[in-house]
């Protein structure tokens, strides 16, 4: 269980990135944070990951207050961030430094198969395409068997085709162990394809504006009427959130 309790974040320069964010996320749930840039969604993810600390409030994972990166939490960054000197397989094993070699190999090979990259186990990062590199990054997070996987605009830098394929792929991977997924995106369709719940944030300061529950069965048809209706709703909500901070304050 992941609790985000009354989290506020004010940076040293006085900018308030987040204000009083409270969220409760069930195990196995897929939750997406959407919002225009500057609404603090990445900051919130980094706070859950233990890379940054809230000015007020806190994050609880299984009733444990997060003060540093948690072993049961994985983070996939916007960029793959692979170590260029390690092969694909060694990169995937990067987080398994406390395990004996045979166990490391066994686990990385299993994950390599899950992300369909077994033939590239010994390739170097520079030989990979953007989509492949991001799959390696996802595999690196999965191999530690996290209960909670955080993804910070994981497909933002990829072309539309690759993005759609990786979204389906992420759901396939999620299906194996059903970890909690908490994603950040500014792609409305991505949020709708993946999520059980969509949290809309508005900027200045980052605050929860609206929550949208998506009850469509998976796999979701992007062209279906319900999908398009939800998309309209979401876009309208975001429009309000982006355009109306002054209005909301009054």
């Amino acid at each position: 269980m992941l609790y985000i309790e009354n989290v506020s974040k004010q940076f040293d320069n006085g900018f308030t990135a987040l204000e009083r964010i409270t969220l409760k996320i069930e195990p196995g749930e897929i939750v997406t944070l959407v919002g225009t840039s500057g609404c603090g969604k990445s900051t919130l993810l980094r706070i859950v990951a233990g890379l940054e600390f809230p000015s007020l409030g806190g994050v609880l994972i299984d009733n444990e207050l997060i003060t540093a990166p948690h072993p049961k939490v994985g983070l996939v960054f916007q960029e793959p961030r692979l170590m260029p000197w390690l092969t694909v397989q060694e990169n995937i094993e990067f987080g398994l430094h406390n395990l004996p070699l045979p166990e490391r190999r066994r686990r990385s090979e299993a994950v390599l198969a899950k992300v369909h990259l077994t033939p590239f186990a010994h390739a170097l990062p520079r030989q990979l395409s953007g989509g492949m590199a991001q799959r390696v990054a996802i595999a690196r997070s999965l191999v530690t068997q996290p209960d909670i996987l955080l993804l910070d605009e994981p497909f933002g830098a990829l072309d539309a085709f690759t993005r759609a394929r990786l979204q389906d792929h992420l759901l396939e991977i999620w299906g194996y162990d059903r970890p909690t997924l908490l994603l950040v995106t500014h792609d409305v369709e991505e949020a709708l394809v993946l999520s059980d719940r969509i949290i809309m944030l508005h900027p200045n300061p980052g605050r929860i504006f609206k929550v949208l529950r998506v009850d469509l069965p998976r796999p979701r048809q992007r062209s279906s009427v319900q999908f398009q209706e939800l998309k309209e709703q979401l876009l309208l909500g975001l429009d309000l959130a982006g355009a109306a901070p002054a209005l909301v304050k009054r």
Binding site: P69, F77, R81, G95
Partner: peptide, 15 residues
């Protein structure tokens, strides 16, 4: 950014 990856996997200073 690479150092941050190390922190996520809780590497010690030496590691």
């Amino acid at each position: 950014k690479l150092v941050e990856v190390g922190k996520i996997y809780r590497l010690s200073q030496i590691q």
